[in-house]
Each structure stands twice: as C-alpha cells, then as structure tokens.
C-alpha cells in the first residue's frame, strides 16, 4: 500500500507548486533555463533486492525485540519474570495486567494529555523550525550567521539542570500541574531549526524561490507554495522525532506535573505499587504507553515522500 504512495509522480505531470491547481498562483517562468529538475523520491529509482529486504528484516527484528518482549512481560506475572530463562512467549495475564495498569495509572487521561502535549510540541517544532530554517538557509538578512550560531549554541547546554530554574518560573506563573507547563517551554527547538536549515540548503533550489519572487509572490506565499512542499519529507521526519521525544519525555514532566493531570510517563512512574513493585504491570503500562505512539508514527511515516517538486522547474 505504502509502495504506491511513495512512487515518484510520473515525470510528465505538472506538480508545480501553485501552478497545477485551479487557483492562480505564482507560476515559475522560464524554468527551462534551470539545469536540474527536482525528482520525486529520488533514490527510489531502484527496487530493493532480496539482500535489501534481508538486512532490513534483521534490523527490524533487533529494533522491535524489546518492544515485543515488553508485551511478553506484560502477559506474565511478577514471579515468572524473576525466573530464568525469562519467558519469550505470551502468558495468560495480558488483559488482567493491562486493566490494572489502565486503572492504576489513570491511563485514559494520561494518553489524552500526552497526545495534546506531544502533538502541540511536534506541530510547533515543525512549523517554527521550518520557517526559521528556511530563513536561515535561503534568505539574506543582517546578523543571520550570528543568530544561527546562537541557535546552534543553545543546543550545547546540557538540559538536566534547567529544570530547577524552569520550575521556579513555572511556579511563578502558577502553571504547576498544568499542561502548558510542559508544552510551552519546548514548543520550539534549536534542533528543529538547524535540521530544517540543513535540509533546505540542498533540497530547496534557490531558483524556485527566485522564480516565485519574480512573479511577485509574498514571503508567505513562497513559504506555502514553495518551501513547505519541498520540506515535506523533512517535516515528516522532524515531526516523528519530536513527537516521540515529547511523548517519552520524563525528566521535566515529572517535576512539573502530577498524577491528577499526568502525561503517560508521569502516570507510569506511579505504576506497580503493589505489595512490592509488580514488573508485569509496569510492563503492561509501558506497552499501553508505547502502542498509540507507534500508530501516530505510522501516519507520519507515510509522509516521508518526495515528489512534490517533480516537474516544478522543468515546466
């Protein structure tokens, strides 16, 4: 299914941003003089061979094993998990443990909250990262290099300590235990800006912007019709990475929130509080916290598609 979607658009079809649709837009003129066209999922020129599949399957198994084992552990009980060798196949306690984890950890609210938090942060990071990355990559303005250095520099300060002063600020704003306390401080990221800048340096032909400018397109139009289409694969990847990061973030949310209004990771910290901590329930909670994440990633993953720019400059 996804194979079809990642197919490059047929070469002849015009998919120029702003020109193919029914609404008038800045049509790049004289594109013929441009030497290189932008291809759709460019490397997709070859089909993967058997070896490719073999390597990918091995890597996939290694990548998924801990997740698989989480599910196995979630289907057992505390005592079985202490046995050796550990279980490698499912036992009969999965639904019981999932239910315990769901009710003990306030999982419904936690999932809703985390979706809001991670969704907002991913959207903010992608949007602001793309426009700032575009400006740094393709526009000329005073202090550009200085500001870029500053942006990259902010990534170099270790994050572990900022939690203490950040909490003072949040407490001052009376945001403790509220979602904006975890959303707003990470709504933009230097990582996102830098990533999009580096991507757009190569992926966005300057000629395209010039062509749009010649047509009198405003900056917002350029952004919408030229930059965003070109940036789509990178936006999808940045969205994925940011979403996961925000979803699994633990260090700051556990300081800022509590279990009356938790994110998934905060909710999970309270799990397994039996007579002694019950590993199988903790793993069930981890599973509940991870599966929805994978669903979201699938949606993003389909968006890592080039091809929007196909034919844009060939005209």
């Amino acid at each position: 299914m996804s194979v079809l979607k990642s197919d490059p658009a047929p070469a002849g079809r015009t998919t120029a941003p702003g020109s193919g649709g029914d609404r008038p837009g800045p049509t790049p003129r004289g594109g013929g003089k441009l030497s290189r066209g932008r291809a759709g999922s460019a490397g997709g020129q070859h089909h993967g061979g058997r070896l490719t599949y073999a390597v990918l399957i091995v890597v996939t198994v290694i990548a998924l094993f801990p997740l698989f084992w989480t599910a196995v552990a979630a289907s057992r009980n505390n005592t079985r998990l202490a046995e050796t060798p550990p279980p490698f196949w499912f036992g009969g306690n999965l639904f019981k443990n999932l239910e315990t984890a769901w009710t003990d950890a306030n999982m419904g609210l936690a999932l809703l909250n985390t979706t809001i938090v991670a969704g907002s942060i991913a959207a903010g990071t992608v949007l602001f990262g793309t426009i700032a990355g575009f400006a740094f990559a393709k526009l000329r303005f005073r202090f550009r290099n200085l500001l870029l250095m500053l942006t990259i520099g902010t990534m170099m300060v270790p994050p572990q300590l900022s939690v203490v002063p950040l909490f003072m600020a949040i407490a001052e704003l009376e945001w403790t235990n509220q979602l904006q306390a975890v959303i707003l401080p990470t709504l933009v990221s230097a990582f996102g800006v830098f990533f999009m800048r580096q991507y757009l340096l190569e992926a966005l032909p300057t000629e395209l912007i010039e062509a749009a400018r010649v047509d009198g397109a405003s900056s917002l139009r350029v952004l919408w019709h030229v930059v965003f289409p070109a940036a789509r694969p990178a936006m999808a990847v940045l969205g994925m990475l940011t979403f996961v990061m925000a979803w699994n973030d633990f260090f700051w949310p556990i300081i800022a929130l509590n279990q009356q209004n938790p994110t998934v990771q905060v909710a999970l910290t309270g799990l397994g509080r039996g007579y002694v901590p019950d590993q199988s329930v903790i793993m069930a909670g981890a599973l509940l916290g991870t599966l929805p994440l994978l669903l979201v990633l699938t949606v993003f993953g389909k968006q890592i598609v080039g091809g929007i720019m196909q034919g844009a400059v060939k005209g």
């Binding site: 290189r36 066209g37 460019a42 190569e202 070109a230 694969p233 990847v237 890592i304 720019m309």
Partner: peptide, 10 residues
C-alpha cells in the same frame, strides 16, 4: 532518508 528523498532523480 528525508534528505535522500530530495536528491534530484536526474
């Protein structure tokens, strides 16, 4: 992968 998607096919 994202960056490779943008390499021109020609």
């Amino acid at each position: 992968l994202a960056a490779m998607q943008a390499v021109p096919k020609d």
